[in-house]
Design a protein around this nucleic acid. Structure first.
Lengths: 193, 193
DNA sequence: CTTATTATGGACTAACCAGTCCATAATGGA
DNA sequence: TCCATTATGGACTGGTTAGTCCATAATAAG
């Protein structure tokens, strides 16, 4: 019926997500975006509405795909506590890499400007819940298997894990050494028993 | 010998710190700064060199005064673990206030652009050490008093506390409720014993 | 009072910002 | 083939950015 798009919208969105993830909202210019995404200004506005709108879309894409990824890994891991250990060990492992230095897109966003934009604030709240819910399931699983005492409140523990995930990823950005992160994870895991 | 400054440099620096703290580096314009600091562009550049230079100065001022403040409070608190509890309870208490929503200037900075500027990266590393060292002293104090087992590594615990402090302050920005933060602090404090 | 020194106000710059608009290109259906 | 529809390239906008520069104001020493 009409001229088709010359680019893959999902691919372009992922590239935009990477830029926002690495540089944040303010430090990312429209030029950065259209260069990385490889499309013209017209196509950009046509397809994604604008900078802020694209940012929201990218952030939602991030939390959805990340949480889905974690949920899948949880299902394929026999032990809940093993899933938790793996998740945190991965943060330690990728600490000195480019990926590690980007931190967590969700927490970066909360830190940068959640309180300046109510829509973004709602998005970060929702994003936290997605991660929290995966940890909650992992803890329930562990409690059923007797790995974690059932007397502990699973919701509190889940939030505690999210909080430590956020803290660890920020410490990576603040220049933490692997052994320091490792020590934190050890302490954290020990506190679950 | 010559015309004197019409403003107090320290007062101006504190005001600049507040703006950077609240809005971050990128989102703070020179106009924001000179408006808040109440001085002209010429005086601004004359006295503080430039935006980035002022940011460094403000960040250093923040970590120095914050760490000094904590050190003083530690000395005047009989029990090390009580100091730790107070410190974290204060974060919970001020969570829904304007101050709480600003988060931690140091961690905000690490999150925003530590990895884009090597000088700032060095500053954040140093800032973390300042906080870590206060917690380290608090833990040593607690271990001497028998409140915390001496078998635990004080350095690891100190870093664990810094990490949780960072995490909690980010969770505040992400819209955490008081009772969620409270639960995290309870879990954290319980893990020290 | 004069002079050397420094602070200040305000005009100015060049680059960049997000976003708009329109003429043109490309496509599928009739 | 022709037309309706949509995508695209690129020129353009008004506003903002950090930072510079100079003429003038204020001061303290002599």
């Amino acid at each position: 019926m009409a001229r088709p798009l010359e680019f893959d919208k999902n691919v372009a969105l992922e590239k935009a997500m990477d830029v926002f993830w690495e540089k944040g909202f303010e430090a990312t210019s429209l030029q950065d975006l259209i260069d990385t995404m490889g499309l013209s200004k017209s196509s950009f506005y046509q397809a994604f509405g604008g900078k802020l709108e694209l940012f929201s879309t990218a952030l939602n894409h991030y939390t959805d795909s990340m949480a889905a990824n974690m949920a899948t890994r949880l299902e394929s891991t026999p032990s809940g506590i093993e899933f938790i250990r793996n998740t945190f060990m991965e943060i330690v492992a990728q600490a000195p890499t480019d990926l590690g230095m980007k931190g967590c897109f969700l927490m970066n966003t909360a830190s940068e400007f959640a309180q300046r934009d109510t829509e973004i604030a709602a998005l970060t709240k929702g994003g936290v819940k997605k991660f929290e819910s995966v940890f909650f399931k992992a803890i329930e699983k562990s409690q059923e298997a007797g790995e974690i005492s059932s007397e502990k409140d699973a919701h509190s523990l889940a939030y505690f894990l999210v909080c430590n995930m956020s803290g660890l990823k920020t410490m990576v950005k603040a220049g933490a050494k692997r052994r320091q992160l490792r020590a934190v994870v050890d302490t954290l895991l020990a506190s679950l028993n």
